[in-house]
């Protein structure tokens, strides 16, 4: 593939162990993000005596983030650079990039939406901490899902040798 940037991208270490650990870490981060918001939701139902509770509005940003993560990581990586090969069909790379853009937009929209909910629902009415924590949990949860997606993406792009597949 012809180089586009003047600075070369640093080569990631090619290790099957590192790749596997990255995928596990990604799942752990996703779980952390999901359970942060679930914890806030259960807490607001069971322990919090205030009049502000977690509703579907707080869940929508996280759902957007999860959908974006699903879209991003469903794309076949090799199709993104498929234009340089002759056997790829009509604009497969273009379609892949469009879908990828929609995935990133969903994910960033999720994070921005969580920040919006935090500000509009909790910060502007100036609620004290345990209630304010619901909004913070939403933001941190979306950020965790985003981080999980980044880790999954990077660890799947780690170049691996064929020995990995053969040793299975």
């Amino acid at each position: 593939m012809s180089r586009l940037w003047r600075f070369p991208v640093p080569k990631l270490p090619s290790s099957a162990v590192l790749r596997t650990a990255g995928v596990y870490t990604s799942g752990a981060l996703f779980s952390l993000g999901f359970f942060l918001l679930l914890d806030a939701s259960v807490y607001s139902k069971h322990a919090n005596g205030g009049d502000v509770h977690i509703t579907i509005v707080d869940w929508i940003p996280l759902i957007c983030s999860i959908l974006g993560m699903l879209v991003i990581n469903s794309i076949e990586r090799s199709r993104l650079v498929a234009d340089s090969y002759s056997y790829s069909g009509n604009g497969v790379a273009w379609k892949a990039k469009l879908v990828l853009f929609m995935g990133f937009a969903l994910m960033a929209g999720g994070l921005a939406g969580a920040a919006t909910v935090l500000i509009m629902k909790y910060v502007v009415p100036a609620y004290p901490w345990p209630t304010l924590g619901f909004g913070v949990a939403g933001v941190v949860g979306s950020a965790c899902v985003m981080l999980s997606s980044v880790v999954l993406w990077v660890s799947q792009n780690i170049e691996e040798d064929y020995t990995y597949n053969l040793s299975l």
Binding site: V23, A28, D39, V42, H46
Partner: peptide
């Protein structure tokens, strides 16, 4: 499969922490 495994392992720690935090 690995992703789901990581999810479940953290869930096993997060679920009791969630229940304890909510006072259940």
């Amino acid at each position: 499969g690995r992703f789901l495994t990581g999810f479940f392992v953290v869930m096993g720690i997060a679920l009791p922490a969630l229940l304890a935090h909510s006072g259940i």
